[in-house]
Design a protein around this nucleic acid. Sequence first.
DNA 1: AAGCCGGGGGT
DNA 2: ACCCCAGGCTT
Length: 389
Amino acid sequence: MTNELNNWSKTKIKDFQATFLSWYDLEKRTLPWRENNDPYRIWVSEIMLQQTRVDTVIPYYLNFMNLFPTIQDLADADEDVLLKAWEGLGYYSRVRNLQKAAIQIVTEFNGEMPKDPALIATLKGIGPYTTGAISSMAFQLPIPAVDGNVMRVVSRLFEISEDIAKPASRKTFEKIMTDIIDPHKPGDFNQAMMDLGSSTCTPTTPTCNLCPINEFCQSFEKGTMLQYPVKSKKKKAKPVYYIGAIIKNNRGEFLLEKREEKGLLANMWTFPLVEEEPIIENTLLPLGGLTSKQPEDIEKQTLENLTKEIKENYQVEPVWLKKPFVEVKHIFSHLKWFIAVYFGQLIEDNDHEELPKNCKWVHPSEFDQYTFPGPQQKMWQAYLTKFKD
DNA sequence: AAGCCGGGGGT
DNA sequence: ACCCCAGGCTT
């Protein structure tokens, strides 16, 4: 028994479990992955739900299970089709690892999710949280599944002051959860934590008077709910500046480039992007703050650079609009992109030679066959709005 | 332990 | 503008 649980007798723990689970039986959300205990369905949902809200996940989940109804289907899937099914969800390595794990399951475990948590944890993309989630929900094993919800709820229940931003803190919460989880309904218990965290025990405005377990909550008793959880601040997203080049040829096609197979937005398609140093008069500013009123010589120099870069990298020399027609901003978890988007029209039919291997001319009617990340979606929408074709 | 990896919604 | 979200992998 941990120190945090000193004042919780075995009777109190059972009382807590009964109270909590009867609330869950009445109030649990109806969700597609709760229809049964199929480990595959649960697994896919858990991967999608990493850092992603339930409402966002549901339509993706339904589509995904329709496309890939079994682990074998997932293992056999074409990677482009797979990535397309994930388009817009973010953290795209999740879906690559999902397929790697499916192949692992087919080759090493006869196509069935192993029941041993130690084996589940060997699968790509499955860490401590997801191991606990699958083990408890699909196989009724009393393993905690500690996510952000659990750390918030538990930190309030027992007034735990450890910094939940630090990876090492997870063990403290796992230990407490191991002590209080209901061994007869571990899956329900873990999911009750999720539902409570999303509906009642929310980050900034918990509705403690409606909480089914407030009588057990130490911070509710003391009125310290808003002091928990303790979480150190993340660093701010770093700004990066690009020129975006939307280039159209005389067949109405646009130049697209496939990104590297590793790193940010791996294997996804965008219009050409040229990184720029936005240093004007020794000041680092977003291009977005300059384009509208930058001095003419700067404007001219930017266009010359763009012309040169595009010619060198893509062997084309379009006629450019002199100024960017839109400034796209896109915020990632760790980066902030500012893209000044230029439009160039290719007049001569010299667009079929020397194009780099990862580039293609694509007609807009075929864009739906390519996976576009957020910034690309924004550039294209801005183009459509501006030029209405 | 820290950094990398998306996107959307709430406040 | 900042925080949060059913985290995991790499270095």
